[in-house]
Amino acid sequence: MQNDVIMAGFGGQGILLIGKMLAYTGMQEGLEVSWMPSYGPEMRGGTANCTVVISDRPVGSPVIQSPRAVVAMNLPSLDKFEPMVRKGGLLLINSSLIDRSSTRDDIRILLVPANDIAMELKNPRGGNMVALGAYVGSSHAVPIDAVERVVRETFSSKPQVIDANIAALHRGYELGEQAVA
C-alpha cells in the first residue's frame, strides 16, 4: 500500500513543513517514507512544492509524475499539478485563495477553505495545518493522533501555538473525512 502526495503553494505558506511532518509521522508509524523538495532558483519567492511518499514497502521512485494526491494551496500550484493527479486520485484545493475548482471528472475534488478556517480559529498562519489535516482525513495515509503527536513535537519550542495548530489540524481532518464518507 502506497500513499503519495505533492503539496504545493507559495514559499512561506509552510508547505515544505507540513510535508516533512507527514513524512516524519509515517516514519514514526514504522512505514517507509521519502520527502523530496523541488529545488532551484525558483525556491525564492516563487512556488514551493514537495513530494511525500509513504509506503509499507521500500519507497521506489521518490519523484512521482502521477501522484495519488495533490494539495494545491494557491492558483499557480493548481494550474501546474491539476493535470498530473492520477485517475481516481485526490485533488485538494485551498478555496480560500483559489477561486476556481477543477473540471476533471476522473478524480475526487476536495475544496477546503484552509485560510478562512485558520482565521476563524484565530490562527492566521495555520492554513497549512488545516490542509494537512484534510489530506490525512481523506487519505488516511497516517493516523491523525500520530500527526497530533508530531505537531506537539514540532512546535515544542513554541508551546503557545500548539493548541491552535492542533485545532486547525482537526478541523481539516473532519472536512477530509466527511468528503470521503
Binding site: V33, S34, M36, P37, Y39, P62
Partner: peptide, 8 residues
C-alpha cells in the same frame, strides 16, 4: 535527489 531528499 540523494542530496535533497529526506528519508529515515
Amino acid at each position: 535527489l540523494i542530496g535533497q531528499m529526506m528519508e529515515p
